[in-house]
């Protein structure tokens, strides 16, 4: 019934006089009574003027009410749509719990053959299949020449991270594994007192690069791996700057800088010479907004510059930031599936 009424009022003309009369009645009720002069009382009534004006006012007022109502409905509708979209994307991500494999193609003319790098970051002790069997099977099928770990493989408060070490042991059977520690590894060492963490990873076959570089021979080619730890605040103090400065300017090998925190590349590492930077940490900005990027990262706040994907640095190098394979907090990923990175360095 309400809808029928509204439709009648919208037209503003007395198609149905009941509604108008009711409104007029209300308007008359709201105004104080004006006493009429006696002379005018004697004259024949002129009913058209006052009721018409009142009807016009009423119609105007109804129009405004209607507008407000539509605006309210629109806002409510939009809120519902946004909520539904969020639920939809979230449900989509939840439904596809499995990671996606993202491929990147780089070119280096120093090389005489192709090199395939698999980059794993921010696993946070998550398992894909029993003992990460799915992850290991996929990596084996991808036939990597080199496997790099971008940090945060565990959570700082894990009671046991043996499954991650077991995964690392399995990875070393597929290709040489090198890694840098993330903030969770550092917190575990310095806050939880796990002094053996690096040794345990080293025993599992992972070469941990802590502000140092290693040259890896792959076929006829050499790749120089430089692992940088920490954040931009401690860059000068923790030996990272010294490490970068001491790297020889030998440009006949492909040079990869591995760091956990992507903002380090922008702030500190963009002035050095290398070909590729790899980082994680940002978890894709938690929510990936289409055409904009990540929503939030701890270092850069809202709309971070580096959250997930490939970026070009000032020195001409490429920086690839992984969305990570796991999560440490309760925030749900929206439109931001976990990802395993595959970087093909091609010679042509």
């Amino acid at each position: 019934m309400r809808s029928r009424k509204n439709r009648t009022h919208e037209k503003g003309l007395p198609e149905s006089q009941d509604g108008i009369a009711a409104v007029i009645g209300e308007v008359e009720k709201a105004e104080p009574p004006v006493p009429e002069p006696e002379a005018e009382k004697a004259e024949p009534p002129v009913p058209e003027i006052a009721p018409d004006a009142a009807a016009a006012d009423a119609a105007k007022e109804i129009g405004e009410i209607k507008k407000r109502k539509w605006a309210g409905n629109l806002i409510r509708g939009l809120a519902v749509v946004i909520l539904c979209l969020a639920v939809f994307f979230c449900a989509g991500d939840m439904a596809s719990r499995h990671y996606q494999i993202t491929f990147y193609q780089e070119i280096c003319r120093f090389l005489t053959g192709n090199i395939r790098i698999v980059f794993i970051s921010d696993l946070h002790s998550r398992e894909y299949g029993q003992g990460n069997a799915d992850l290991l099977a996929d990596i084996a099928a991808l036939s990597p020449d080199l496997i790099l770990l971008g940090g945060d493989m565990i959570n700082w408060n894990d009671t046991d991270y043996e499954p991650v070490l077991e995964t690392c042991r399995a990875l070393t059977k597929l290709a040489p594994v090198y890694g840098v520690p993330g903030n969770h590894e550092s917190e575990r060492i310095y806050n939880a007192g796990d002094q053996d963490l690096y040794a345990r990873f080293e025993n599992a076959g992972v070469t941990m690069l802590r502000n140092e570089s290693k040259i890896v021979r792959i076929g006829d080619n050499s790749v120089q791996l430089i692992g940088i730890t920490g954040t931009e605040d401690g860059f000068e103090r923790n030996g990272a700057q010294e490490c970068m400065t001491q790297i020889p300017a030998n440009r006949n090998m492909y040079r990869v800088v591995l760091a956990h925190v992507p903002v380090l590349f922008k702030e500190k590492l963009a002035s050095y010479s290398y070909d590729l930077g790899l980082a994680g940490h940002a978890h894709g900005g938690v929510i990936q907004i289409p055409r904009i990027g990540g929503l939030y990262s701890a270092e850069e706040g809202f709309l971070p510059a580096y959250s997930r994907g490939e970026y070009e640095l000032r020195n001409g190098a490429s920086l690839i930031v992984g969305g990570g394979l796991g999560d440490a907090g309760w925030l749900p990923r929206i439109n931001n599936r976990p990802e395993l990175l595959v970087i093909d360095v091609n010679w042509c």
Partner: peptide, 8 residues
């Protein structure tokens, strides 16, 4: 092949 995008 859902875990590999069309772009990849």
């Amino acid at each position: 092949i859902p875990e590999r995008s069309a772009k990849s």
